[in-house]
């Protein structure tokens, strides 16, 4: 199948962890049919999982909150944008501190590990929060040199 790059896929889902496994697996399969390697797809699956978990845990303050995941697939990279419907300043500060400074898994085994993984697997992670505390996380992950066409 010939793939015409770039293309974009977006999905909106309720702010519930139960929705994340099929979404991360879908992204992984999408990348593999777009000729990215299984390893790239696996690593991207982890990124989607972690960042969606974070959005559900910290960015869903109401029972009907939704998360939006946008995947933009280029020949040489994938870009993810995750929009949630509202975070708190405390959560954002925690997010930014983890992105900027690696955590110690021995001291903190429950918090911050996911963002550390995202940070390590991505070329760039940007977090934007607007005046209504709506959070948007943008991630860029490049295709490994070895699998460049």
């Amino acid at each position: 199948m010939d793939i015409i790059f770039p293309y974009k896929v977006s999905v909106r889902f309720p702010g519930d962890l139960e929705y994340i496994p099929p979404i991360r697996k879908f992204v992984s399969e999408l990348l593999q049919v777009s000729n990215f390697s299984p390893k790239f797809a696996y690593r991207s699956e982890i990124i989607v999982d972690e960042i969606c978990n974070n959005a559900v845990n910290y960015g869903c303050r109401t029972s009907n909150a939704e998360i939006e995941l946008i995947c933009e697939i280029f020949e040489d990279r994938i870009e993810f944008t995750i929009n949630d419907q509202g975070s708190t300043k405390e959560n954002l500060d925690q997010l930014m501190s983890v992105i900027k400074q690696p955590i110690d898994p021995e001291k903190d085994i429950q918090h911050g590990l996911g963002l550390e993984i995202v940070r390590m697997l991505s070329e760039n992670v940007d977090v934007v929060i607007d005046e209504k505390n709506l959070t948007s996380v943008h991630i860029v992950r490049k295709r490994e040199d070895i699998e460049q066409k």
Partner: peptide
Amino acid sequence: RYVNSTGLGTLLH
């Protein structure tokens, strides 16, 4: 096949 950070935290626990 797969472990995410929540799973890893549990393994450490």
